[in-house]
Design a protein around this nucleic acid. Sequence first.
DNA 1: TGTTAAATCACCCGAAAGGATGAGCTTAAA
DNA 2: TTTAAGCTCATCCTTTCGGGTGATTTAACA
Lengths: 142, 142
Amino acid sequence: MKKLHKLNRIYWIYGGVMGLLMIILQVIQYKTMVREFNLDFYGASIGILFLIFGIWLGSSIYRRKSTDKYDGDKLGLSNRELEVLELLAQGLSNQEIADKLFVSLNTAKTHISNIYSKLNVKRRTQAIQKARDMALIDSPKE
Amino acid sequence: MKKLHKLNRIYWIYGGVMGLLMIILQVIQYKTMVREFNLDFYGASIGILFLIFGIWLGSSIYRRKSTDKYDGDKLGLSNRELEVLELLAQGLSNQEIADKLFVSLNTAKTHISNIYSKLNVKRRTQAIQKARDMALIDSPKE
DNA sequence: TGTTAAATCACCCGAAAGGATGAGCTTAAA
DNA sequence: TTTAAGCTCATCCTTTCGGGTGATTTAACA
């Protein structure tokens, strides 16, 4: 639900820019049609415009990775799981996490597995990343 | 010296792609000239081509921003090791890193092992943390 | 009272990661 | 030309991770 919300906004922006570009192109096309037509100039203009737009778009796409924040939403993670996630992000091994929480290795593993499925990731490194992006844990730079 | 090496490669790639695009454009131009000329198709083609190229270029540029930073202390990490470290911090597995760098799994593991000893850590999660702390890699919040 | 979610633990298995060591190749430097 | 560093790849071995399944206990809840 929230994801769709966010994505929709992005699509609207992109769509809007696309539409604007199309209009610009139409204007250019019209102008160059009524005057002496210069194909090279026309092609170069379109190329440059789309190139600039593409660069901006590419940057945006890449940059968007960490901009998405999930305020308050903890994705159904329980308290214990958040606790484990914190230790996970500190670079501790499963055994070390188990020791810190005074539970067995198996229990720690169970929690971690549940975290993975809730975060929809496959490795602990990805879990750490996602947790950081979603501000589920303390991030060093904020 | 080594940096120039790498940058040169990038420039060559960019240059090559640029040149190829120009050739493609010339061909399209020629074909559309001799037949019935379709301006919309011409414009759309150029637009799409440059858009794709721009997106790719934009991503590359943005991604590359921090790779050439921090000439300071890298703890004796070689260029290749920094490259591996970057991918490591992206949450990739050893196999995925190997695939991205077009080397064998064993090579990737060797690099990673060397990184561990140079960073004085034992696990990849710790390596990521230390790399982030020392600004050896991209930190999401800066 | 029955149900549900959370937390705990166990066992098994395969995949991934990590350590140790050796070795071939290339390039830059002494 | 010898040396050193960097990159590459390999093999063997151990540990850790991760997936799957099932079970118990407790607390909250309808």
